[in-house]
Nucleic acid binder design. Sequence first.
RNA 1: GCUGCUGUAGCUCAGCCGGUAGAGCGCGUCCUUGGUAAGGACGAGGUCAUGGGUUCAAGUCCCAUCAGCAGCUCCA
Length: 728
Amino acid sequence: MIRVQLPDGSVIDVAEGTTALDVARRIGERLAQQTVAAEVNGRIVDATRPLEEFGGGEEPIRLRLLTTRDPEALAVMRHSAAHVMARAVMRLFPGTQLAFGPTTGHGFYYDFDLEHHLSEEDFPRIEEEMRRIVEQAEPFERFELPREEAIAFCRELGQELKVEHIQTGLADHATLSFYRQGEFVDLCRGPHVPDAGKVKAFKLLSVAGAYWKGDAKGKQLQRLYGTAWFSPKDLKAYLQQLEEARKRDHRVIGKQLGLFHLSPDVGPGLVLWLPKGAIVRSILEDFIKRELLERGYQPVYTPHIGRVEMYETSGHFPYYRDAQFNPIFQHEAGQLVDAWIQRLQAGTLGPEAERRLAAAAVELGCPFQDWDLTASTEEKIARLRRWELQQERYLLKPMNCPHHVQIYKSQPRSYRELPVRLAEFGTVYRHEASGQLNGMLRVRGLTQDDAHLFCTQEQVEEEFRATLELVQFVLKSVGLEDYRIQLSLRDPDSDKYVGSDAVWEQAEASLRRVLTDAGLPFSAEEGEAAFYGPKADFMVRDCIGREWQLGTVQLDYNLPERFGLEYIGPDNQPHRPVMIHRAPFGSMERFVGMLIEHFAGAFPLWLAPEQIRVLPVSDKSLEYARQVERRFRDAGFRVSTDTRSAKVNAKIRDAQLERIPYMAVVGPRDAEQGAVSLRDRIEGDLGMMPVNEAIAKLQEEVRSRTVRQVAKSAFTAPEATESEQFAY
RNA sequence: GCUGCUGUAGCUCAGCCGGUAGAGCGCGUCCUUGGUAAGGACGAGGUCAUGGGUUCAAGUCCCAUCAGCAGCUCCA
């Protein structure tokens, strides 16, 4: 007999070999039908496995039945759905190689290696085959094999990727588990639903490339994405949510509302801010600037380029070379010599090619007439570098910090003037790989609301604290109050970081202490730190539940060292300051892009590009409309008048579609009384009121930076737990 | 950067098996002068992304380039 404890505390005795499903059946047939998996002693497992496999001994086995109501069950079912999909693909495309098929936040995917190029046109066929499999409701049967047998078995199945995975990724597993579904068998840790009939409402969503084991140099696979839910209603709600997110796409809204433009003629990833988008940005910038002045920051301006040497000193140039625009050389042979050095370093330069390079360099005026092809690579590089260092070389700045460091260094500093806080909306350029570009969210030229704080070691925690407070304040001002903080620490086993262990430990401890003291919830992530120091990032959730990385605060003990920064302490001796990098918004491009999606283009009054539109009821009221427009403009509002000879209905419709917060309908009745009939974009007609009253009302809304409405998501279905555990 | 898909009027898109281009919205003109989400008529507008190729003939088929999209990988 086995003793089993249920969640309500009751304990029952069952015979050996009893499964969770049996227990469910004992309680009720309905419950058994809804049981998808089980949580046994805290572990999520198949409902069809004998309970004694998970425990025993003196303590009763703790059992929780997972039904279609539990989010954990959803993840199990989705993983089973991935198997069903894989089975369908195998049927339609025999010989398909299976890679990984895990669950995701809202669904699942499976990576395949197959000849046929999957496309959306294949989806109906695959889905139909999946439905057939689901209807048959065959059980998922689990079995285990010792590793050598498992390898032989996979080989027999022709699944070479699985063989490789057992030999590498699962090298320390003595036995491997498999799940069988009729003719389909897959290496899998599980757990799975009892039978395929538990996979209810599903839909294939997209197909895309993916790398085998996430390695960009590895084999390219085809990844089929799907979503699955326990009810068609949940599926429908989720698809609507996807549709909602699509409608909020800042690229779509940005075009509709004329906020920004990306022109291939200017270049990919280079944002053109149209007048309306520029207004939003400049209001945000003005807002921040005022806050910074109050908080003891000093505005500075620095150029868009700087000498490459400066970025070599800072470490940015060598470290991020491949993500930067190439250096600008004054000498026309500069690029050539630069490429030459890189080829030599990579060892990809043959003698004939090098001879031609040398000839070309001489032709362009370099003193390499006596170039010795037989010299060692080191000697060659040294000679080329010597030449290169004599040239004027500039970099489009990828970071503002080195420039700000120079401002700090421009005069001797006393401890009395610290902290020095230098702030700039600094535009930086990064040559992001073409596939990474995305509207305003990932661009090649971006403006950071940047600042660098130079302070003493004793001041670090206070400055960090004040910075966190600032970020919180600005996020609150735009109505973003749902966020968490991610503390990014170094990976102790990696060598990509600069600076000593002691300094890193000190920096990480400081950040942790301030976050803890401030009572801010944070999660610590190892290996996520920048190469020069740990950082705290604000992960902000928007109104439809998506998370965005915006503001960041980073501690840096490295740059002061590299640039030899100093201040004179009370002991009249030089000391090294500490630097803090921080950007509450991150970049203006990304932040505004995010705001567009968050508000679905309907900015709160204080940010709206056009705040009020005056709508004359007919041409006869044009004159009065102009007067009203003037009144609003004089009161500081961004206002226009719709002078078209259209009906009011049409004018209202257009203003609504343009997300203009307020409309002032004016006709003869209003003119008579010096009034407007105010219409609120959200509430509709507010009735007639004197112009003064309308102005006062809206001024108050601007002053308080009220955020009146963000669209609520209709989507409430629980998000399944992201699960590494189903990773194979 | 990699894999796949896409590129037709200002915007959203249709255009079959190759035969010289279409809709709605927007825009212009005129009529209409109206009170809270689309009044009507007429009209203008296209090197079918770019460059090659196949063909009697290419928006349509092939190749390359550029750009965009999805995902992967990356992100100071």
